[in-house]
Design a protein around this nucleic acid. Sequence first.
DNA 1: TATGAATGAGAATTCATTCAT
DNA 2: AATGAATGAATTCTCATTCAT
Lengths: 189, 189, 189, 189
Amino acid sequence: MNPKREKIFNAAVKKFSEKGTTGTTMKEISQEAGVGKGTLYRYFEDKEDLVSSLMSYGFERLTEVIKREIEGIESATDKIKKVVEVQLEFYKKHCDFCRFLTREFWGYKNKFEENIKEIRSDYTVVIEGIIEEGIEENEFKAKDPEVAAVSLIGMVNLTALHWFMFKGEVAVDKIREEVIDIFLSGMLN
Amino acid sequence: MNPKREKIFNAAVKKFSEKGTTGTTMKEISQEAGVGKGTLYRYFEDKEDLVSSLMSYGFERLTEVIKREIEGIESATDKIKKVVEVQLEFYKKHCDFCRFLTREFWGYKNKFEENIKEIRSDYTVVIEGIIEEGIEENEFKAKDPEVAAVSLIGMVNLTALHWFMFKGEVAVDKIREEVIDIFLSGMLN
Amino acid sequence: MNPKREKIFNAAVKKFSEKGTTGTTMKEISQEAGVGKGTLYRYFEDKEDLVSSLMSYGFERLTEVIKREIEGIESATDKIKKVVEVQLEFYKKHCDFCRFLTREFWGYKNKFEENIKEIRSDYTVVIEGIIEEGIEENEFKAKDPEVAAVSLIGMVNLTALHWFMFKGEVAVDKIREEVIDIFLSGMLN
Amino acid sequence: MNPKREKIFNAAVKKFSEKGTTGTTMKEISQEAGVGKGTLYRYFEDKEDLVSSLMSYGFERLTEVIKREIEGIESATDKIKKVVEVQLEFYKKHCDFCRFLTREFWGYKNKFEENIKEIRSDYTVVIEGIIEEGIEENEFKAKDPEVAAVSLIGMVNLTALHWFMFKGEVAVDKIREEVIDIFLSGMLN
DNA sequence: TATGAATGAGAATTCATTCAT
DNA sequence: AATGAATGAATTCTCATTCAT
C-alpha cells in the first residue's frame, strides 16, 4: 500500500478509537499523520470514504490472517481454537482499530454501506464454514451454523473489548482458554 | 417519570437509532417530540446529558427486567435460560435502543463516563452473580465468571444485532435455543 | 418585507457591487448587515438563493416602477421617454444594484436560472409592448420589436454603467437627452 | 503568439464562459489545455493575470479587426455599418469570449484594473472617433459623441448576448439591419 | 522546462446553546 | 414554563500556488 495512505490510516485509527469518527476532525487526523489537510482528500474522497475504507481494510486484514492461519489444520475443533487465538491476538495488537470497528460497524446509512456489509459477510462466512465443516464431520452438533458463528464472534469481540475498556489490556490467555472451553464444551458440569 | 421527559426520550431513541447521536440534531429531536427546542434544555443539561441519561435509563430498564424475571427461579441453569430469553425479547422490542446502545456504549471520554460504566457494571454483575452461584452449587464449571458473563452478553448482543441489521428482525426463538444450547452444553458432539 | 431580510439585502447589494458575488463572503455580508452569520441562513437557503433572490427582487422593483410610471401616458413616444428617464433614475439611485445586475445576470447555470430568466423576461416584455403599440399606432417603424426593445435597454444600461464606472456618477440629464434622441430620431442629420 | 500560451487562452475562454472565472479552477484549465497545472504559472503570473490578459487580448483583437475593416471606407455612415457588422460577427464567432467579457469587464478592484480600463478605452475611442468625424462632416448630429458611442456598443453588446442566451445563437443579419436602422434613422416614422 | 503532489488559508454551512418574549 | 430567533465556534472541503523531481 501507498506509504502516505498508510500513514493516514494509522493516524485515523488512533483518533477514531479515542474520540469516535464524528468526534474526530479531519484536521486532527492530518496533524496526527503529519500531512496537510488537503492531502487527506487526495487519498480519500471524503471523511465517509476514509471511515469505510478503514473498516474494509481492517476486516480484510483480519479475514486474511484467519484464513492463512487455519490453512493446513485438520479438525474443525482445532480450527476454532486457532480462530479464537488469532482474533484475540489481533484485538490485542490493534485494540484501537477494534474499538473503532465495534462502535462504527453498526453504522447508519452511508454511501458505502453495501460495500461494508459484503466485507463483514466475508469474515463471518469463514467462521460459518468451519462450523458447517465440523457438523458434516460429526464433530459439532449446532443446528444453525450462522447463529453459532455470530455467537463465537460476539463472545470474542465483547470480552476482548470489555477487558480493553475496563482493565486496560486484553488478557489473551485467560480469555482464550475460557471462551474456547465454553464454546466447545459449554458451561454445564 | 415526567411525561414530557418521556416524550423526549422516545423521540431521541428513535432519531439516535436512525441517524446516530452526532447525526441527530437537537432540533430534530424537539420536532419528533413535538416540543420547542428550548424545552429540551429544561429537562437535560445538554446533548451529552440527554445521550447518557438515555443510555442509563435503558440499561436500568434492562437490568430491572432481568432481576425481576429471575426472581423465584431456583437453578442457575434456568436463570440463564430466562436471562437469554428476556434479553432477546428486550432487543426485539427495543431494537432501536439496542442499536443505539451498542454504538454509543464503547464511548469516549465524556463527563458522564463514570456514571455509565457503573450502570453497565450493574448489568454485567447480575449475570456474573448467576454464574458464580451456579459454580458454587456445582452446576457450572467456569473458571472465570467474568469472562463467562461477558461472553454470554456478547453472544446475545451480537446475534440479536446481526439479525436485526442483516435480516430486518430479531428471530428470538431460533437464536434463544441455539445460544442457550451452546452456552450450556458447548459445540462438541 | 421582513426588516431583517431587507437589512441583509442592502448589505449584500453593497458588497456584491464592490467585490462581485463570488468575491464576497457570507461573513462579510453578515458583518455589513450587523447580524450573525447563521442568521443569513434563516432567511436564505444558501448563497445562491441570496444572489438570485436579490436579482429577482431588483428586477421586480424596476419593472414595477416602469409600469406604474407609464400608466396614463398616451403616446408610445412619451412612454419611451418616461422609460428611459425612470431607468436612468433607478440606475443613479441604485447604481450598486445595477452593477451587480449587469455583472451577474449573464450568469452561469444555477438552480434558480429559470426563475431569473422569467423575471428578466417580464421586464423586457414591458418595453417590447410599448414598441409594438407604437408600431400599431403607426408612430414607430421597427421591424423587430424585440431587437428594438433590447437595443434600448442596452443603450441605457451600458451608458449608465459606463458613466458610473469611468466618471463616478450617472449623468442622468445628459444621457437621457442623447439616448432618447438617438433612439427616436437616429443619428443622421 | 507562443502556441502553448494560445492553447491555454483557448482552454480558459471555454471554461470561463461555461462556468465563470471564479467557478473555473486552474486544474480544469490545465486539463482542457492538455498541460500540467504548474505550466500555467510559467505563462501567467497567477489566475488574475490570466483573466486580465485574456480580457486585454480579446479587446485588442476586436479593436484591431474593427480598425482594419473600416480602413479605406469613406463616409462615417458606412463605417458605422461596418462596425456593427464586424462586432456582430465577432460576437457570433467568439460568443464564449463575449459572455466572459460582459460578465467580467465591470470588474472589481484588481491589480490589472488600470490596464483593462485603458484597453477598453481604446475600443470605445475608435467608435467615438468615427462619430466625431461624422459630426465634423455634418453627416451626424449627435451632441455628445461619447454617449452615442457607448450607446451603440450597448445596443450591439446586449442584443447579441440576449440572442445568444435566450435563443442559443446570434442572429447576425436580423440584428444588424435593425440596429443600424435604429441607430442611424431612429424609431420615429 | 514541465509536472502534479502537497499545502493550508479560507469558504460555505451547520448546529448546540442562549435568552428575550 | 415554553418557545424559537439569533448567534458564532467549529467543521468539512476546495483550490490557488509552490516546489522537489
